[in-house]
């Protein structure tokens, strides 16, 4: 069963796979860098909702840049956790996007944004209940059917939790993936932020994630700040990656093996060199892994057999 699923994932991403290397997000601020040259990044990720317009310079830029880099389309607006279901019109727009640009990876979040038809522009938290799990699994199924492919779902960062939750977040994410046949996008910055905000152990989260379901990893900066006079970590994607998150990335890679790692930066974007520098650190983490990592380890075992 697990093997079938894995083959399914591999097959649908075969057209132009996103490599198990470090990538960065393509943002408007850096369009010029990518139109004038060929910055050294193994792959690029875009926010899907920014490229569902009929035409114009954004679409033309992505069309031009796509020729030179593997692509991942990362959704922020599908609202997989909405009790009222998904917006069929938006699914159709996303289908056009993936048909046109043939991304190697397509992902979304374990969160919700839409209620009563209103789109609250944030990744809002779900209670981790059987009810919410059923909603999420049903919506992922609808999305995968509409897109004609497997997606990855990302663990969110959060600031509140709910007493009615009965399932740990990592089990909730893993179970949604098992039931729907999707993969996981493991955001290690989000694990760190949520673990800190809610007082659990990030390693317990990591150890609860079935590594074979993980298709991509995210890293990002967060703000160590205060809200209402009390300390909180806010996932603002507005700075370099904190040391604790680099450590967590090493631990995750050692446990799961090499995966595509995305350096996210969305707020107060720096010059491209800074962003590429963070991605280079992620690549170094992947490179350090190579001699001992599970990926090569299992290959060595195959060779021996």
């Amino acid at each position: 069963m697990a093997l079938e699923r894995e083959n399914g994932l591999a097959e649908s991403f075969a057209r132009d796979p996103v490599p198990a290397a470090a990538g960065i997000g393509l943002r408007h601020t850096h369009y010029g860098d990518f139109l004038d040259g060929r910055p050294a990044t193994a792959w690029l990720e875009v926010h899907s909702e920014n490229y569902v317009c009929p035409g114009g310079p954004r679409m033309a830029t992505l069309e031009a840049v796509r020729q030179h880099y593997p692509l991942s389309c990362h959704g922020v607006g599908l609202s997989l956790g909405s009790a009222e279901g998904l917006d069929a019109g938006h699914l159709a727009r996303l289908r056009s996007l993936v048909d046109r640009f043939e991304p190697g990876l397509v992902s979304e979040h374990v969160s919700w944004s839409t209620t009563g038809g209103d789109y609250l522009n944030d990744l809002l938290p779900l209670p981790y209940t059987e009810e919410a799990l059923d909603v999420l699994v049903g919506n992922i199924g609808q999305a995968q059917d509409a897109l004609g492919r497997t997606i990855l779902i990302e663990n969110p960062s959060s600031y509140v939790t709910f007493a009615e939750s009965t399932i740990p977040e990592w089990e909730f994410c893993a179970e949604a993936a098992r039931r729907s046949g999707c993969g996981l996008l493991l955001d290690v910055n989000n694990i760190h932020v949520s673990a800190h905000n809610h007082g659990y152990d990030a390693l317990e989260f990591l150890n609860g994630i079935p590594g074979e379901l993980v298709g991509e990893i995210h890293i990002a900066g967060h703000a160590d700040t205060e809200w209402d006079g009390r300390p909180v970590l806010i996932d603002d994607h507005g700075s370099t990656v904190k040391d604790a998150v680099w450590d967590l990335l090493d631990t995750a890679l050692a446990r799961i093996g090499p995966k595509p790692v995305l350096m996210e930066w969305d707020l107060d974007l720096p010059p491209l060199d800074i962003l590429l520098g963070e991605a280079a650190k992620a690549q170094a983490a992947l490179d350090r892994l190579a001699p001992h990592g599970p990926g090569l380890g299992s290959r060595a075992m195959d060779d021996a057999a």
């Binding site: 522009n121 944030d122 600031y159 007493a163 809200w227």
Partner: peptide, 22 residues
């Protein structure tokens, strides 16, 4: 039963701030 409810305003802030930016 929402825990750390004093942080609910972070979501309100994120939504208004991001849409103001749009």
């Amino acid at each position: 039963g929402m825990q750390n409810g004093h942080r609910f305003g972070i979501y309100r802030n994120n939504i208004f701030k991001s849409l103001t930016g749009v």
